[in-house]
Amino acid sequence: MEAALLYLAGALVMGLGATGAAIGIGILGGKFLEGGARQPELIPMLRTQFFIVMGLVDAIPMIGVGIGMYIMFVVAAG
């Protein structure tokens, strides 16, 4: 029972983080497409800015993935 709850906790941490990242990266990609279509000469600049902002967006989900995997592989298994 306890192990099942731990697996559930890990899955929730990863899943909710992934939902937030999906929304954020989707909006980011849409804005990139819009900006690049309006001003194609800015695409190289937008690409590097996209890279930096994508790092900000996916930071929390990545931490969530790490903690979720720690719960599943180490805490629940041990």
């Binding site: 990266i25 990139f32 695409i43 996916d58 592989f73």
Partner: peptide, 27 residues
């Protein structure tokens, strides 16, 4: 660099690989 769709596709592809690589490394 001039094709916005191709650029976005490459960016998404690199992001997916980054996430997958992070998960594999954690695992």
């Amino acid at each position: 660099s001039d094709n916005v769709r191709q650029t976005l596709r490459d960016l998404y592809k690199s992001e997916i690989w980054k996430m997958a690589l992070t998960m594999v490394l954690f695992g």
